[in-house]
Design a protein around this nucleic acid. Sequence first.
DNA 1: AATGAATGAGATTTCATTCAT
DNA 2: CATGAATGAAATCTCATTCAT
Lengths: 201, 201, 201, 201
Amino acid sequence: MARPKQQDARREELLRAARAVILRRGLHATRVRDVADQAGVATGTVTYYFRELDDLFDLVFAEAVERFCTLREQDAASRPDAREQLVSLIRTGLPTGPDDELCCLLYEFSPQARRQPTDARLRRELYGRQVDLYIRVLGAGAQAGRFTLRRPAAEIAANLVALEDAYGYHVIAQTFMTRETAEQHLFGYAALATGDSTLTV
Amino acid sequence: MARPKQQDARREELLRAARAVILRRGLHATRVRDVADQAGVATGTVTYYFRELDDLFDLVFAEAVERFCTLREQDAASRPDAREQLVSLIRTGLPTGPDDELCCLLYEFSPQARRQPTDARLRRELYGRQVDLYIRVLGAGAQAGRFTLRRPAAEIAANLVALEDAYGYHVIAQTFMTRETAEQHLFGYAALATGDSTLTV
Amino acid sequence: MARPKQQDARREELLRAARAVILRRGLHATRVRDVADQAGVATGTVTYYFRELDDLFDLVFAEAVERFCTLREQDAASRPDAREQLVSLIRTGLPTGPDDELCCLLYEFSPQARRQPTDARLRRELYGRQVDLYIRVLGAGAQAGRFTLRRPAAEIAANLVALEDAYGYHVIAQTFMTRETAEQHLFGYAALATGDSTLTV
Amino acid sequence: MARPKQQDARREELLRAARAVILRRGLHATRVRDVADQAGVATGTVTYYFRELDDLFDLVFAEAVERFCTLREQDAASRPDAREQLVSLIRTGLPTGPDDELCCLLYEFSPQARRQPTDARLRRELYGRQVDLYIRVLGAGAQAGRFTLRRPAAEIAANLVALEDAYGYHVIAQTFMTRETAEQHLFGYAALATGDSTLTV
DNA sequence: AATGAATGAGATTTCATTCAT
DNA sequence: CATGAATGAAATCTCATTCAT
């Protein structure tokens, strides 16, 4: 009983270290040595736990996906009605700013998907769970008479997630848009698609 | 006068080679040797023309941005009216499929933006020119009485570009969505936002 | 009394494991980890029992030498007369084929002799015991009037062992000669040197 | 024309260096770094010329085989008659002593044959050329009436090469036999098999 | 007695860069 | 201009060995 726990703790530690290095240096510039230094262990230790560094990266990504989705699910669940839930989803879907660690992490892994099957799978999961969330909330709002959906729920949900994705990237890369503008645009679309004009920032 | 031309030709050649390698192996896995092999020259030659490999990459990216924007601008310009121009923009904005070379290239550079200033600038240009295109078309359509904009043109334009971006990524990475579905969703939004219900695939 | 027995059993186990790995991977490619895996114990256990891996290897070699010599001595001893004993020696002196485990093992250690004193000593013993065997049988055959030695017994014995050695190597490495041909050549020499023309395969 | 020569010179240089290190440290203990140090170049240079160190080793072995065979062929060819040629072959077939570099080199590669196809091929060549030499000399001697072969020439030749091999190993490894004794035994066999009793040391 | 997590020395591998030609 | 041989820094990989349990 004792050993496995200790091992898991060490794995957690390396995962934390990898996360920190990825955020600081970028996924592609992250070396075994960096992770080892960050965790305060020998490079051999990292190799001992993760024969392939990519296995560790997969774990970091999986954990980030899980955390991001759970956060949103829980925050939405804590809201009283569909409108509030939709507002919650839009708000938690965008990075708080260029330094939002969880979102930065997720973006580090985006470009991997084209070449790494594990990443593609996780990305699909990430996307799927978010679309499902939106679909559920849109359905509930329509049911309750609060929303009048102008387009199929699945389309609206997919579009909202896509907007989050694209704007999230701009917020983090500081290429075009601040979180505020992004939020306004998302609310604009939500209002239009649900017929609920009270949906504003 | 002769020499510069020859030099430019050689630079073009290396640029083409780099493009091919980036598509095949990914931006981060592209080495001087790969580019040299692809171009059929010595490694020293690559270094000779591009002291920093990143300078070559920047050129590849800049060229891709220019080509992508020009293509869309020209295709849109060749259409008779605002509706057709909007259709053109949506169609040329999405990758034809997972093998769309130009789009793949653009996506290879996306994740760089957060850390490389040159890439951030290019990405801003890429985004700006596309949003402008949409704004112009939306404005023209509204002017002509064809579109009844339900939201500010700038917001609609930004949203359309964002949807293209996000869906384009999914089409290329084959993570969630085919080009067909992506197109449907974009047309769905365009119809909603412009009040032109004839906007369908 | 109980402990030492248990310890000896464990040492036997490791010896068996080492033998298997050496045959499979070759002496130089045999690592502590391989032996541990093969024996189903932890790497620490191997080190615990054999501070130096070479000590284990020496044991494997010594055991192989002992087994090989004893086998031949016993098989020869079980024959009724000198001629039959000589036939036995020639037959047990060659590998049965490329997969003869005991012979393969002995050949793994051959090249060590030049650099490792322990191996040189064992090799000397291996050679000495075999030459002695032949000398005894040749002497007995001459005494009994069966053999008419054309050369000194020591020379004939040394030559027979040398031929076994060299041909054994070719049989195992499959470089030149099958066991059958090798046997013919040995019998040819034996017939010539002892004057006993009935010595054939 | 200049470049290839220079490259070949460098390859020769590395070959020489490898040879020296193999003799000093043994084939299995020879590292890229050792060869580089011995040649006075960077480790990268060795890798540049020989991606796989085994390729270099193969060359060293091939060159040794060639040199050994040529030496014997030439020395034998320089003798006036079959008897002198046979004497030459026996003499050049044994190491001059434990420090005979060429023979030491050949023995370093012996154990490889079981696992490395290239080495097996070279070893076959080495053996084949020597047996051929002996067969030719034995045939000439028989033809000339000098030898009366008591056994088939092919068998005698094979046995002589086998004796050389086995005794050569003992001379080098200093496990049992000096060169003098080995030579006596070989002459003893030669005298017996050819009926030429003048064949002595 | 036995373990196996953890180490870190030492080996290889990779590759941008230099430089004589 | 262009080359490509040669470099060596930097990264990874391998693995015997240590040591707390």
